[in-house]
Design a protein around this nucleic acid. Structure first.
Lengths: 121, 121
DNA sequence: AAGATACTTAGCTGTTGAGCTAAGCGTTTC
DNA sequence: GAAACGCTTAGCTCAACAGCTAAGTATCTT
């Protein structure tokens, strides 16, 4: 039962490796079998499989086996979670800007009122 | 001398931890000192410092010390690198769609030509 | 049925990550 | 100048990660 935060953990963790990012790139061009995916990498198959499993656990890919071949597919929808997190961050920055604007506006108002008081108008 | 890929490694690695993401959120509201940042977390200061250092190494924050206080600032520009990577991925997907379209178009053309041959026109 | 193929499991090694405590250092504050 | 403050360093533990080899299983192919 993963919550939002630990899903993000897994997502970013999965992306923090060049092999796995390369696999995602490859899968962006279309589904592929494990050994097709593994071929470009100078790595023992069991090592490569670990990357695939991590990617699957993070939700970035789906896999299914037919006969002796396991086919991997990109789960494009999962990328929305990243966009979403980025938006959240930006929203925080904007909120701060809003607050700054409010401060500035409040100060302007104060100064205007003060001037009214001083000039009697 | 970090290259693009290892910078991404560091970036995603830095984001793959809830404490660090929370710090980024906090810094989105404005700069803060180490101890201000550390206050919400039930963690020894040296442990917390490691997170800060990782964030700084990833380029997501900048820090500077005045007197005994170190102030941390969000490096918003760094987030563009994420957007950029996401765009790259999307571009790959789109390229694939283009190729599919070309296949479909090629097939249509083939069928049209074939029909011409069969009908003699 | 034998052999090749495509993973899969088990288990080991070395490195990195996340946390801790204890103690140190430079800067205020009193 | 002593004490308090705000980090900082050093060094330890435990878990997770990235890689390996060796051997196993299930599915084609011949």
């Amino acid at each position: 039962m993963e919550n939002y935060s630990s899903e993000l953990d897994g997502l970013f963790q999965a992306l923090a490796d060049p092999t796995r990012r390369a696999v995602l790139g490859r899968l962006g061009q279309g589904s592929a079998s494990i050994s097709d995916l593994a071929e470009p990498f100078d790595m023992a198959l069991p090592s490569f499989m670990k990357h695939v499993r991590l990617l699957e656990e993070s939700g970035l890919i789906r896999t299914q086996k037919q006969g002796r071949v396991r086919t991997c597919t990109l789960e494009k929808a999962r990328f929305a979670m990243l966009e979403n997190w980025l938006s959240e961050q930006r929203a925080i920055w904007e909120a701060r800007t809003d607050r700054l604007e409010q401060l500035v506006l409040a100060k302007q108002e104060f100064l205007r009122d003060q001037q009214k008081r001083e000039t009697g108008r």
